[in-house]
Amino acid sequence: MLINLSIFLRPLIVLFFKGNNFTDPIDGKSYRKFLPYGYGKQRANALSPGTLSLERHRQMWLYLQNETNFFTDHLKVLHIAPEQEFLRKFKKMKNLDYTSADLYSPIVDVKADILDLPFEDESFDVIICNHVLEHIVDDRKAMSELYRVMKPNGWGIVQVPMKNSLQKTYEDFTITDPKERQKHFGQYDHVRWYGMDYFDRLKSVGFDAEINFYSQKFTEADIKRFGLNKNEIIPVVRKR
């Protein structure tokens, strides 16, 4: 219902916010402002009216567009818990053999548990899995599954909520009350805050893992125009 409602209302929202101060690189449209967003303290100019993208989504799009073969080569892609706008655009791309998967979402191709993916070993050239692992208690098992189904020389983006100032991931599985999880982990259904040792976890299952502050490649003017966060990391993984 919410997906259908957002599709219906989006043209009106886009028209209302039309302007020249901000540009969403995903749809190329410009706006006088982006919308505030965030649990608790809200971030100004975070949510694009057109694509409903956040800073991390726009950064990822720019990375895919400028630094990878995602838009040009024939690639078999697995997208876990796909963002609505990405799913819509990626499904239309003729160079992609695109599969979306999630345990609960009504809009995906395959209903799948990330702890036991129903795909053969070494099936996908590219895997995208954003803001999923913070919900999973056994996150290393989920990482292992992503590694298993990735082809050799494959790559992926596996974003999670991170505190860059936190060296060691903070998790406590005795905290189950939604209000307490909100207090400790930033959202009612999260089970941890990832620290910089997140990349060690990715490496422990076999991945090469890259800490990429991609937004910092842009000028301050473009960071503001695209609504990016220069402290946001893109975790890029590769399978040798």
Rank of each mutant, 00 (worst) to 15 (best):
T169L: 02
T169M: 06
K168F: 07
Q159M: 12
G195M: 03
L166D: 05
Y188P: 00
V160S: 11
V191A: 09
R181A: 08
E180I: 11
T176N: 14
Y194M: 06
Y198M: 08
P178E: 14
S165N: 13
Q187I: 04
E171Y: 10
S165Y: 03
H184Y: 10
G186K: 03
Q187A: 13
D177W: 01
F185H: 04
T169R: 04
F199N: 11
W193T: 14
H190T: 11
V191C: 15
T169I: 09
R181I: 01
Q159C: 08
T169F: 02
D177M: 03
Y198D: 08
W193S: 04
D197I: 03
D200R: 07
V160R: 11
R181D: 03
R192P: 12
P178K: 14
P178T: 15
P161E: 06
Q159E: 06
H190V: 02
K163T: 08
Q167C: 00
D189E: 09
T174A: 10
P178N: 14
Q187G: 01
V191F: 02
Y194T: 07
Y170H: 12
N164W: 08
R192H: 09
W193E: 06
V160M: 12
E171S: 13
Q182M: 09
Q187F: 04
H190L: 03
Y194A: 05
P161Q: 08
T176R: 14
K168V: 15
K163E: 13
F185C: 05
P161I: 06
Q167M: 08
Y188M: 04
D177N: 04
T176H: 05
I175C: 08
Q182Y: 02
K168T: 15
K183T: 06
Q187M: 10
T174H: 10
K179N: 14
G186M: 05
M196Y: 06
R192T: 11
W193A: 05
D197R: 10
D177Y: 02
L166C: 05
T176M: 08
Q182I: 06
K168G: 03
G186P: 05
E171R: 15
S165D: 12
T174R: 12
Q182F: 03
E171L: 11
V191L: 07
D177R: 01
R192D: 13
Q159Y: 00
Q182W: 01
M162V: 15
Y170I: 07
H184P: 00
F199K: 09
M196K: 15
D197E: 06
E180F: 00
F199E: 07
P161S: 12
